[in-house]
């Protein structure tokens, strides 16, 4: 098994000078290919910050963060953009584009690479939406879909590009128990099929059982692995 995410002695703090607020302290964690890892912890524990650093959305300066064999510490924007293109993101809010249909939203992931024809993009996006159970909602816009359906569209959007890693931040926060659990199990099933690594931040204890491993963060320190 190959290591997809390798973090060593990561320190991170907000602010500067006397106002420095340490958020992450000496984090060391490595995640293998195909692994599903949940990060839990109370709010303010730094789990979302950790996720944004792994996702190449926030610049860290101390320690080592290797994602898909790229060092993120003191890296340049183009390097991070390249890695980001191989990561699927699922947000707390669905963050779909309001003006696009479900199908077009999912296609946005594929337009980036620009290696497919319009028809291929449509077919693959439609396939993915069928896989998440929205085959009859392809031409619906976000305003016409329910919360659970929206989150499933965003799962489809994250997965359609066949990413190596999925980063999810509280994907069940805005869903009721049942649709939340359905969405996460769906994510797990599809990810397992394609050997995709999942790093999921949550404090929803109802979904802990989908994980291969649970990491608990408290005050920027890993409590137990």
């Amino acid at each position: 098994m190959s290591t997809v995410i390798d973090v060593e002695h990561l320190d991170f703090s907000f602010g500067s000078g006397a106002l420095t607020q340490p958020v992450l302290k000496d984090i060391t964690l490595s995640i293998q290919k195909g692994e599903i890892v949940l990060i839990t912890g109370p709010s303010g524990s730094g789990k979302t910050t950790f996720l944004t650093i792994i996702g190449g959305l926030r610049q860290a300066f101390h320690g080592s963060v290797r994602v898909l064999d790229q060092q993120f510490i003191n890296s340049s924007e183009p390097v991070k953009v390249k890695v980001r293109q191989q990561i699927g993101y699922i947000f707390q809010q669905h963050n779909l584009l309001k003006s696009l249909t479900a199908l077009q939203n999912v296609s946005m992931t594929l337009e980036m690479g620009n290696t497919l024809t319009e028809q291929q993009r449509r077919d693959r996006s439609a396939e993915m939406l069928i896989a998440v159970g929205l085959g009859d909602r392809l031409e619906y816009k976000p305003g016409q879909l329910s919360g659970g359906q929206l989150q499933r569209v965003s799962i489809a959007r994250a997965l359609v590009g066949q990413p190596k890693i999925i980063l999810a931040d509280e994907p069940t926060a805005s869903l009721d128990k049942q649709s939340g659990y359905e969405a996460v199990s769906l994510l797990k099933r599809l990810a397992k099929e394609s050997q995709t690594t999942i790093l999921l931040v949550t404090h929803d204890y109802r979904i802990l059982d989908i994980a291969d491993r649970v990491v608990e963060l408290e005050d920027g320190v890993i409590k137990k692995v």
Binding site: L57, R84, Q85, Q86, Y89, N95, L96, L97
Partner: peptide, 10 residues
């Protein structure tokens, strides 16, 4: 928000 999402996606 939509643009930030797209930026995150790469």
């Amino acid at each position: 928000n939509e643009f930030a999402t797209l930026k995150a996606m790469g």
